[in-house]
């Protein structure tokens, strides 16, 4: 049984948006936690979170100051921010609405409930007091939906394209998380000694990787080792290496996969050749930038090969 390109595309984006909502929630959660541990005056700014998501131009259209209130509003409740939690959940729901017939019935119900929950509570969850509960609920519900997919969806095209969307988004987000660590501290030497470990720890927390890091490497979080760990540990589900391996596995059974597979191989090669322990922060930032470009190419290849209809191809050539 094959699958319509349009349906595959919508499933891919449903998974991408759900993963985005979860990852953004994790990031805000971990960052808020960290900020509370840092004495007033020396904490890094809230603008970092907006920068991670490359959302400065969009932010500037709605707000002026990068204060906690504005940034939280923008990342949690802003309907016009595609990286924001509320709008990502809404976009996920729109994509499931038209593909529910290829998914287990409960998936639609739970995505819809998640949307109703976010719609009711996003705006009320900007303050620190309510924020935790909201973020934790979003994360837990996203994981519940993932669990349903893993435990009930037959391993066919639907599963494959959901996995591709999820892993691609996750790989992208993990590189962004690493980049924030690099960017947060660039050119601000006075913070390094005290704040540095706190930032890296919070970033590990946002990837649910602190426990694994302690067991594998030790309790002391150090920049080079942390970056190496989240980029290249092939057993860690949120590491870039793990995501690339997963993407490869889902690509293999698809027709016309040559182009996309070549890009995955290229990305893996870049990752192996890079040594986070030996590089400066500028070099790390540059690496992430280039690596994200490969991920974009990979998305374009998936889009071109399996999603794009002829009309859209014609439109692209025109513009």
């Amino acid at each position: 049984m094959s699958m319509l390109s349009r349906v595959a595309e919508r499933l891919f984006w449903m998974a991408r948006y759900l993963e985005r909502a979860e990852d953004t929630a994790r990031l805000i959660h971990a960052y808020t936690h960290m900020v509370m541990d840092i004495p007033k005056g020396s904490e890094p700014g809230w603008d970092i979170l907006v920068r991670i998501l490359d959302a400065e131009p969009n932010f500037a259209q709605h707000y002026r100051a990068y204060n906690e209130q504005n940034v939280m509003k923008f990342l949690i409740a802003e309907p016009d921010n595609p990286g924001g939690i509320l709008s990502a959940i809404r976009a996920a729901r729109e994509n499931v609405r038209t593909t529910r017939d290829v998914l287990p019935g409960e998936v639609w119900e739970h995505v819809n409930e998640l949307y109703l929950y976010a719609q009711e509570f996003a705006e009320k969850s900007i303050s620190r007091r309510n924020r935790y509960q909201f973020l934790e609920t979003v994360i837990a519900r996203c994981q519940m939906i993932n669990g349903m997919v893993v435990s009930t969806l037959p391993r066919g095209h639907a599963y494959r394209f959901i996995k591709l969307g999820q892993l691609l988004e996750r790989a992208d987000m993990t590189t962004r998380v690493v980049d924030v660590g690099a960017a947060a501290l660039l050119g601000d030497e006075r913070l390094h000694s005290t704040v540095d470990p706190l930032i890296w720890t919070s970033l590990l927390n946002s990837l649910s990787a602190m426990g694994a890091y302690r067991r594998e490497i030790g309790p002391q979080v150090e920049a080079g080792a942390m970056v190496d760990f989240v980029l290249r540990t092939d057993t860690l589900p949120r590491s870039v290496k793990f995501c690339l391996n997963g993407i490869r596995k889902e690509l293999v059974p698809l027709n016309n996969n040559r182009d996309a597979l070549a890009l995955v191989i290229k990305a893996r090669r870049k990752l192996s050749a890079f040594d986070p322990q030996q590089c400066s922060r500028e070099e790390l930032h540059l690496f992430i930038d280039r690596f994200q470009f490969i991920l974009t190419q990979l998305y374009n290849s998936i889009d071109r090969t399996w999603f794009m209809t002829e009309e859209r191809q014609a439109l692209t050539t025109l513009t």
Binding site: R6, W306, E311
Partner: peptide, 26 residues
């Protein structure tokens, strides 16, 4: 049966109707 929208379908030079799928035209 497959639920399709207009953009999922196209008519080829052989005057037959096809749907666009991830495995190519059917």
């Amino acid at each position: 049966a497959e639920l399709v929208e207009g953009s999922d379908l196209f008519v080829d030079a052989d005057d037959a109707l096809y749907m666009r799928t991830v495995d190519g035209p059917i």
